[in-house]
Design a protein around this nucleic acid. Sequence first.
DNA 1: CCTCCGATACTCTACGTTGAGTATTTTGTA
DNA 2: TACAAAATACTCAACGTAGAGTATCGGAGG
Lengths: 179, 179
Amino acid sequence: MTRVLVLGMLDVQPLSGYDIQQVLRLSDAERWGGVLIGSIYHALKKMEKEGLVAVDSIEQTGHRQKAIYKITKKGQAHLQQLVGECLEASSVSYPSTLYSGLSFIEKISNDDALTALYHQRDALAREYAELDNGMRLKNAAMSNHIPPMTNLIFENMFAIVKQQQSFVEKAIQLLESEK
Amino acid sequence: MTRVLVLGMLDVQPLSGYDIQQVLRLSDAERWGGVLIGSIYHALKKMEKEGLVAVDSIEQTGHRQKAIYKITKKGQAHLQQLVGECLEASSVSYPSTLYSGLSFIEKISNDDALTALYHQRDALAREYAELDNGMRLKNAAMSNHIPPMTNLIFENMFAIVKQQQSFVEKAIQLLESEK
DNA sequence: CCTCCGATACTCTACGTTGAGTATTTTGTA
DNA sequence: TACAAAATACTCAACGTAGAGTATCGGAGG
């Protein structure tokens, strides 16, 4: 997945590892992608060896230098391959840590469990607020003309968070009723 | 997460790595957990070094032997810690591979994209069917007395798959309308 | 003019995951 | 009873992730 993001960005224009990190940070991909610095540089190095990307130029700034990578023909073909795979592979992702926590919830006291789930609820509320804020910013930046696919993704993210909120709410009610 | 599952199971009774794999496979945790063999043995070895689990006994069968692990006092404390963390950490998980595929969907032809998304739709339908089947089996095995928390988890899984299905449907419609 | 803080650009190592691979034992079946 | 297939039990190396750590550079305030 890191590879798709990195290749996809390099296909627009040559970038350095740091640039990629920045663009990712500013784009909404940061929220759902969660790709960290280490993975980006690793992917670049790896893909360079595989001939999917190549160093375009090296910019010098005093004693510091940065490598600008560009995508190769082979890399573009690989990108298409990867995009296809991403689209067709089953995409359900369950909140497995929460599930495992709930599965073994009897291992801790009812009170401790409730406290933890209240934190969970707060975290979800924050997530929702940040998402909302992110979309407002995006809307403002694009003067209310967000591309339809991006919009679909946003809507899906909202739906996922909402679903998770109602799930946690039910779990809390269940625990509270057992008091 | 592997650790919670492994510790949680060992807290019920001593098991070997292979046993853990089997129990996981039979339980519904296999569906959402997706913990692989390698990870289990790795977790066991690691936790043994940390004093969270210990070898309870070694069963000999001819020239083959299997190590039965048990949880330690320290491990039980750690398990409680972990369960708490699992419950309180924000649990939203977005389908990031699908998102990245959709983000770069212009990199492939409209037709290829649609073909891939039809596969995605099929995969989701299969997932739904398997989930349904899994719950029926569970219901039968427990003679319709599934514990409420397990039931909540099942319901949440259904909701997630359904949400994903409607998302993919919308994406498909969007692409078809652009033909 | 200096200095200190934050941005820039990347390195490095520890860690968990993944699944193919290995070797033994049991089971079905002819 | 003999043989192949399946189950058992685990090993191992390659790989990606993670994020603390290192070092340089630019600019704002004293």
